[in-house]
Amino acid sequence: MHIRHSGPGDIDAVRAIYAQPSNYASTLQLPHPSRALWEKRLGGTDEHFHSLVACEGDEILGQIGIASHARPRRRHVANVGMAVSETARGCGVGRALLQAAIDLCEGWLAVHRIELEVYTDNAAAIALYEACGFVHEGTARGYAWRDGRFVDAHLMARLSGPLAPTG
């Protein structure tokens, strides 16, 4: 398996991963994502968005998006979101994608704080994030509408380097 930046030729494969029921249920994506939506997301025109994919040969197994903030007082912050193909779970794809995103953020983008939101019922993702140094910062009740009801999400973050006092 190798990790690389996504390109225009990856749009259909990435869209297909997010179209899997467990992936749109675990993210803020909607069922039946359009190609146009993914062309816009992965088109490479936003300098503050980076997309990495995990590949085995020519097959894309997962994708992670990294959105860094453009506003001056939040330039040190990025938000990540990812999905792994249902057929590739439990094989280290999510960990490899997350570690590559952390390395890009902390080593090259001068990101000090990486944030994410994860539904409270997604135990596998929560365990992965905790193992990679993310900590719970709170729970957003009624965070999103999913399958006819509101669901909660944990707000998690990873900080690099020493923390300055907040008081």
Rank of each mutant, 00 (worst) to 15 (best):
residue 96 A to N: 05
residue 96 A to V: 05
residue 97 L to A: 13
residue 97 L to T: 14
residue 99 Q to Y: 00
residue 100 A to H: 05
residue 100 A to W: 09
residue 100 A to M: 08
residue 100 A to T: 10
residue 101 A to R: 04
residue 102 I to S: 05
residue 102 I to E: 13
residue 102 I to H: 02
residue 102 I to P: 01
residue 102 I to A: 08
residue 103 D to T: 12
residue 103 D to V: 03
residue 104 L to S: 10
residue 104 L to C: 09
residue 104 L to R: 11
residue 105 C to I: 08
residue 105 C to F: 12
residue 105 C to T: 08
residue 105 C to D: 02
residue 106 E to Q: 15
residue 106 E to R: 12
residue 106 E to P: 03
residue 107 G to T: 08
residue 107 G to H: 08
residue 107 G to K: 07
residue 109 L to A: 07
residue 109 L to S: 04
residue 111 V to Y: 09
residue 111 V to S: 12
residue 111 V to Q: 14
residue 112 H to G: 04
residue 113 R to C: 05
residue 113 R to M: 06
residue 114 I to F: 07
residue 114 I to D: 00
residue 115 E to W: 05
residue 116 L to D: 10
residue 117 E to H: 11
residue 117 E to W: 13
residue 117 E to A: 15
residue 117 E to S: 13
residue 118 V to K: 10
residue 118 V to I: 08
residue 120 T to W: 01
residue 120 T to A: 15
residue 120 T to Y: 03
residue 121 D to W: 12
residue 121 D to Y: 14
residue 121 D to G: 14
residue 121 D to T: 07
residue 121 D to L: 04
residue 121 D to A: 08
residue 122 N to G: 10
residue 123 A to Y: 06
residue 123 A to R: 10
residue 123 A to L: 12
residue 123 A to D: 15
residue 124 A to K: 15
residue 124 A to M: 03
residue 124 A to I: 10
residue 124 A to P: 03
residue 124 A to L: 05
residue 125 A to K: 06
residue 125 A to W: 03
residue 125 A to N: 05
residue 125 A to H: 04
residue 126 I to T: 10
residue 126 I to D: 00
residue 126 I to K: 03
residue 127 A to Y: 01
residue 128 L to E: 04
residue 128 L to H: 07
residue 128 L to S: 06
residue 128 L to M: 07
residue 129 Y to S: 04
residue 129 Y to I: 07
residue 130 E to N: 04
residue 130 E to R: 15
residue 130 E to P: 00
residue 131 A to T: 09
residue 132 C to I: 01
residue 132 C to N: 15
residue 132 C to F: 02
residue 133 G to A: 11
residue 133 G to Y: 05
residue 133 G to K: 12
residue 133 G to R: 09
residue 133 G to D: 06
residue 134 F to I: 05
residue 135 V to E: 13
residue 135 V to D: 04
residue 135 V to M: 11
residue 136 H to N: 10
residue 136 H to T: 01
residue 136 H to Y: 12
residue 137 E to C: 11
residue 137 E to S: 04
residue 138 G to N: 10
residue 138 G to Y: 06
residue 138 G to T: 12
residue 138 G to M: 11
residue 139 T to P: 01
residue 140 A to H: 11
residue 142 G to K: 11
residue 143 Y to G: 02
residue 143 Y to H: 13
residue 143 Y to L: 04
residue 143 Y to R: 05
residue 144 A to G: 02
residue 144 A to I: 03
residue 145 W to N: 07
residue 146 R to V: 15
residue 147 D to K: 01
residue 147 D to L: 09
residue 147 D to G: 03
residue 148 G to T: 02
residue 148 G to W: 06
residue 149 R to K: 09
residue 149 R to V: 02
residue 150 F to Q: 11
residue 150 F to L: 15
residue 151 V to H: 06
residue 151 V to G: 00
residue 152 D to I: 15
residue 152 D to S: 14
residue 152 D to R: 11
residue 152 D to T: 14
residue 153 A to H: 08
residue 153 A to Y: 05
residue 154 H to Y: 15
residue 154 H to E: 13
residue 155 L to P: 02
residue 156 M to F: 09
residue 156 M to Q: 06
residue 156 M to K: 02
residue 156 M to L: 09
residue 156 M to A: 05
residue 157 A to D: 06
residue 157 A to L: 09
residue 157 A to C: 14
residue 157 A to R: 06
residue 157 A to Y: 08
residue 159 L to N: 01
residue 161 G to R: 14
residue 161 G to C: 09
residue 162 P to D: 02
residue 162 P to R: 01
residue 162 P to G: 00
residue 163 L to H: 12
residue 165 P to K: 02
residue 165 P to C: 02
residue 166 T to G: 03
residue 166 T to Y: 00
residue 167 G to M: 00
